[in-house]
């Protein structure tokens, strides 16, 4: 077994995560965060992916509004009742109270994004209150003209002045359990994960890194795991029925990467 492969198979199984982007109670898919298409019912899809062998489901309420909160909580509850695998919920979580609501509705972990950038101490509070294991910090980065990575907030609409690599370090220090790292410049392109970025962050940080943005086939999962990502997330390629989670697992097995 190659040294690289030994690194990959160091004890935890690289997770294949399916993301449900939810808007108004429906799973949707957009290109570069824009132009949404209806992909189906969240409960139905979550169960389908669990059946297919997904290692985790991430539910992101991409149009989270206060008015819609009761609805979102109800959907989360219905998914959680039926799922026997880990379930992460994010989108519009702005406070400790918000987090508590979603954990009580059955989420195992929460994903914080804009709120963490705006109020970094929120990461500390949630880690102290509920444990680091349930704090995922979702970070959207975009490669700019100068090849630097800029951190974006508000669903990828607003560029911040935050230095991406400083931010990765800071969220770890504040008690995040995982980083969900979306390369916006790859999102919806189908050309694969930004493995240069994922590899660097996964090596530098002492918490797990979930690669996101750009996957359109099973080989992209193989590549990002070989590059060091601890987990990888995709949405469209699964929702469109082009690939099942089994297809991805089969490809991983063929490359001797541990799967369940």
């Amino acid at each position: 077994m190659s040294e690289q492969l030994e690194q990959v198979n160091n004890g935890l199984i690289p997770r294949v995560i399916v993301c449900l982007d939810v808007a108004n109670g429906r799973v949707v898919k957009g290109v570069n965060f824009k132009g949404l298409t209806d992909m189906g019912d969240p409960v139905e899809l979550a169960l389908r992916y669990q059946e297919q062998g997904a290692d985790e489901i991430v539910f992101l309420d991409i149009k989270a509004t206060l008015e819609n909160r009761a609805n979102a909580l109800d959907t989360v509850r219905r998914v959680a009742q039926n799922l026997s695998i880990p379930f992460t919920v994010g989108g519009g979580l702005n406070s400790y109270a918000d987090v508590e609501q979603f954990l009580n509705a059955g989420a195992d972990k929460v994903a914080l994004n804009s709120a963490a950038v705006k109020t970094p101490t929120l990461i500390n509070e949630i880690a102290e209150g509920f444990g680091s294991q349930c704090v995922v910090v979702a970070i959207d980065v975009n490669k700019d003209e100068t090849d630097d990575y800029a951190v974006y907030v508000s669903g990828g609409h607003v560029r911040t002045e935050v230095n991406a690599f400083d931010w990765f370090r800071e969220v770890e220090k504040r008690g995040a359990g995982e980083i969900l790292l979306t390369a916006m410049h790859r999102d919806g392109t189908g050309i694969g994960f930004d493995n240069e970025l994922m590899s660097r962050v996964a090596k530098e940080r002492n918490i797990q890194v979930i690669a996101s943005g750009g996957a359109s086939n099973e080989q992209h999962f193989v590549d990002t795991f070989m590059a060091g990502s601890d987990a990888a997330l995709a949405a469209g390629m699964f929702h469109r029925g082009e690939y099942s989670v089994q297809d991805v697992k089969k490809a991983l097995k063929q490359q001797q990467i541990l799967t369940r």
Binding site: R15, S132, Q208
Partner: peptide
């Protein structure tokens, strides 16, 4: 653990 906390599937 190599990464802390340990979060994930193992054999």
């Amino acid at each position: 653990s190599p990464k802390q906390p340990m979060v994930g599937w193992s054999k």
